[in-house]
Design a protein around this nucleic acid. Structure first.
Lengths: 243, 243
DNA sequence: TTTTTTGTGCAACTCATGTTATAGAGCACG
DNA sequence: CGTGCTCTATAACATGAGTTGCACAAAAAA
């Protein structure tokens, strides 16, 4: 599929979250040549050591970056949500230094690296928006380093929930501090550097204290101010302009 | 100081580590207008919440990015070494989401954000090299998330030492797997998400096992292969071409 | 339907790392 | 040439999080 498609709306909206874009830019993005692909949960979109020739953009669903240690444990490094470009860095770097996997069933639009390369040179306005998205992802990495390095389990998970909720709200996928976690407790453990057992303990604790209400994987933050306070959460690092 | 100065050699060399640059690019970088400044150890170069109007480039010495939690603990997020641009992200983002402090006495060249902005648009070759430097920093963030999240204390510190040594060697500041740690054990603890006491225990252990030889802050890696193996260290994520 | 697999929920026990405290080495400075 | 600093070193003790193991529920497969 090379023609206009509603799919890339998602990208344009996501980019305009942090960088104003005019109608022309919007139009241009929507008309970018791309190829739609669907992945089942758990599929590899990018493997460490390879050099992909397309950059997938998430239209629907979720993915995560991940690395494995030789001891067999897995660390999840970041989550991608609809509108996120998954692989800008491999435009510039030789080979991928980590894996990207789908969390749920995922629909992506592949954009050829050559198309992107041209875009970055010819449309400085859009280029700026793309770099901002990449820089914000790096900012989230920094916060995760702090979260994992210096917060205890309860604070850490509370922080994770706050961050994910705000990110979902920004793209219209959460309302009233209420959202669906698209992952198992094991994934959550791999995001926070904990064990699944301990994640389970802490989630129960957070429910028992009345900060959140859980129904399977549905989370409702009952007391946002208190949760955010316990979480040591401040959303400056997400760089969402209107918030 | 606005004229040619040997100082910015450092930047040009660092950029050319991962992205080939011709004599013209080299020359151009060395002639960039800049202002030299010197900071004592522990000075703040950038504060969370502000928007600096220059990007400092390290000519000599070391700096670190840092965030504080409300509980008063500090997490060091990354280390900058000579040739590193400290603040590319604030060209594009509204306000800084973290602090940057000097580790040792440090000499930087301030480049005005407006100068940089112009450079990024007019010299795509150099722009690419700058983006690559930023993307490699993000790659190091990812590895730190894995390091802190999924490796035990011994492995974690071993990994830190391997990484720092390779980075120093790449810019010619370490020879024969031997280098000077420009930081206290407390800094090291804040880099690895441990306590200073435990860092001390682990360093002693690494010496006792004969993997490293310590003399004050001088570290000699006595058995590189073994240390790297224990550290689960592979330098792919540093994206150093010639290595 | 039955069977299998995957995820959640707990409990009991272990251990790696944190906490607190103290002492000495080296250095900076009046 | 003390008098504080700051950093390193180490010991004793405390604890948060890991480990192992099992039960149950829900979803997927047969």
């Amino acid at each position: 599929m090379l023609a206009k498609s509603p799919g890339l709306d998602t990208l344009a909206k996501s980019l305009s979250l942090r960088s104003p874009m005019n109608a022309d830019d919007f139009d241009f993005l929507q008309n970018l040549p791309h190829r739609i692909e669907r992945f089942d949960a758990g599929s590899y979109l990018i493997r460490e050591g390879t050099h992909p020739d397309t950059c997938p953009v998430i239209l629907d669903g979720f993915t995560f970056r991940q690395k494995l240690t030789v001891f067999g444990s897995r660390q999840i490094i970041s989550l991608q949500i609809p509108g996120d470009m998954i692989d800008v860095q491999n435009l510039f770097l030789d080979e991928s230094d980590h894996n990207v996997q789908s969390l749920s069933t995922v629909t992506v639009a592949h954009i050829r690296q050559s198309t992107l390369e041209h875009l970055l040179l010819s449309r400085p306005h859009i280029a700026r928006a793309i770099w901002i998205q990449a820089l914000v992802e790096a900012s989230i990495y920094r916060e995760w380093i702090v979260n994992i390095g210096r917060r205890d389990a309860r604070t850490r998970i509370a922080h994770f929930l706050c961050e994910f909720c705000i990110r979902l709200k920004a793209i219209g996928l959460a309302r009233d501090d209420s959202f669906e976690l698209p992952m198992t407790q094991e994934h959550l453990a791999d995001c926070t550097g904990l064990t699944p057992v301990h994640v389970n303990r802490v989630l129960k604790q957070l429910s028992d204290t009345g900060l959140i209400v859980r129904n399977k994987r549905h989370i409702m933050v009952a007391k946002w101010a208190e949760l955010a306070h316990e979480a040591d959460f401040s959303q400056r690092y997400l760089h969402i302009a209107n918030a």
